[in-house]
Amino acid sequence: MRRWNVVSGVAWRTLKNALTNPQILLPTMLFPLFFFTAFAGGLSQVSKVPGFDFPPGYTAFQFVFVLLQAAAFGGVFTGFGVARDFEGGFAKRLLLAAPHRSGIVLGYALAALGRWAITAALLTVVALLVGMEVGGGAVDVVGLYTLAMLVNFCGYFWAAGIAMRFRTIQAAPLMQMPVFLVLFFAPVYVPLSLLEGWLRTVASVNPITYLLETGRGFVAGDAPHVLGAFALALAFGCLFWLWSFRGLRSAEAAGA
């Protein structure tokens, strides 16, 4: 009960800040929408390239990428908030008040999920309004959003681990850049089979490629390697969860 109080308290405060201060929430909401518009709108002809085979169309193809991207960056942006709290000293208040400090890390995670949920809802509405076709059924849709949720946790736990080790917002590029690279060194615009050269080599071993293929498969109603993708997302989630808790220990040892 006491731990839940900490989780809910931290999540409430982080979400309240985001919901009452447009400068915090708007970038996380508008950037994915913008990417969706720029990619799905500007590059729609790419689906006519020989070998491009995705029946629901290019809008749905890009929607899945942007949904996962928004999930990952929703987590990373929450990590920025963690870093700011440590830099500004507010984290000390949380560390002092929380009987169980692991609840602080989980509270931010819940807030990250809340932020992403808002963005995902908006993105989905816009995608459906511009005519996105969905081939999959309800189970596929649940699968897609669950997968994105796991990506959100991965992004958050990764960034929180960095934030609590460095305890300054100057570590933002360190939180952001690897996520950006992992996301973009994947089949963003075309399927893996149409990539060439070094990008194909990198994308073939990039775990995001695997998740993207499953996610796009959910929308098409024919998801490949579902168990593998969830196992991979869960494994990374656990790994980064440990990473973030070690980060908390490091912050505690340093006196926050």
């Binding site: 405060r13 709290d85 500004g88 000293g89 507010f90 000390k92 208040r93």
Partner: peptide, 10 residues
């Protein structure tokens, strides 16, 4: 504490 550790937005 010495520094008030408050969230300016709350």
């Amino acid at each position: 504490l010495q520094e008030a550790a408050l969230d300016p937005l709350l």
